[in-house]
């Protein structure tokens, strides 16, 4: 995979709920950088990510532009924005095998899908797991598969919604390290939503407080 540098700009983004602005943000996130968003529960962190990814609920109004690599994507449907997502749970599709989960996001044009899946399983130490039921993976394994699935879909930006909050302490720092390292290597601008100050420190980038 050749690394392309991506850049995410949030220009005068303002999200309103019941005529009340809940989030206002104006930032640029360069390739490999992580913007940490912090704020109390219910303050609109998830809504900000939903707006960027392209599925803000109809209860909200939003203005401003989301610009990825110089192009305004604010009007594009979610599947064309290429914003990779990680949630609290790894959310591996329960009806697909581990390999099929990885395959799901690989862009249409790729001919060597099978090979890609095998290589990436090897990379995360899960060689031979392609046919496994995702329900049988441990928390750490599932988290790594979810990250790999995201990377294989070749996103241009990455949005993380409290992705480490359900992991126990030891696993947490390990996975966190892996995630940031890979995202940085892939040159992806990232937004991280978290409650944990340690996450912000590890992210080692700008912090935005709602």
């Amino acid at each position: 995979m050749g690394v392309r540098e991506h850049i995410l700009e949030l220009q005068d983004v303002c999200i309103t709920l019941n005529r009340q602005a809940i989030v206002e943000i104006n930032r640029t996130i360069k390739a490999g950088e992580v913007l940490t968003v912090m704020g109390p529960s219910g303050s609109g962190k998830t809504s900000l990510l939903a707006y960027i990814a392209g599925f803000l609920g109809s209860a909200f109004q939003a203005s401003g532009r989301i610009v990825i690599d110089g192009k305004d994507v604010s009007e594009l449907p979610a599947e064309q924005r290429k914003a990779g997502l990680l949630f609290q749970d790894p959310m591996l599709f329960p009806h697909l095998s581990v390999g099929e989960n990885l395959r799901f996001g690989i862009p249409q044009g790729d001919t060597n899908k099978q090979e890609l899946v095998m290589c990436s399983l090897q990379e995360i130490g899960l060689a031979g797991y392609a046919d496994r039921d995702p329900g049988t993976l441990s928390g750490g394994q599932a988290a790594r598969v979810a990250l790999m699935r995201l990377l294989l879909s070749r996103p241009r930006v990455v949005l993380l919604d409290e992705p480490f909050s359900k992991l126990d302490a030891t696993l947490r720092s390990e996975i966190r390290l892996q995630v940031f390292e890979r995202l940085r290597k892939a040159g992806l601008p990232t937004i991280l939503v978290t409650h944990d100050a340690a996450d912000a420190v590890a992210a080692n980038g700008q912090v935005f407080q709602i």
Binding site: P77, E79, F104
Partner: peptide, 9 residues
């Protein structure tokens, strides 16, 4: 949402 984010129509 996840499927769309992975590029699925």
């Amino acid at each position: 949402q996840l499927a769309a984010a992975l590029g699925a129509s």
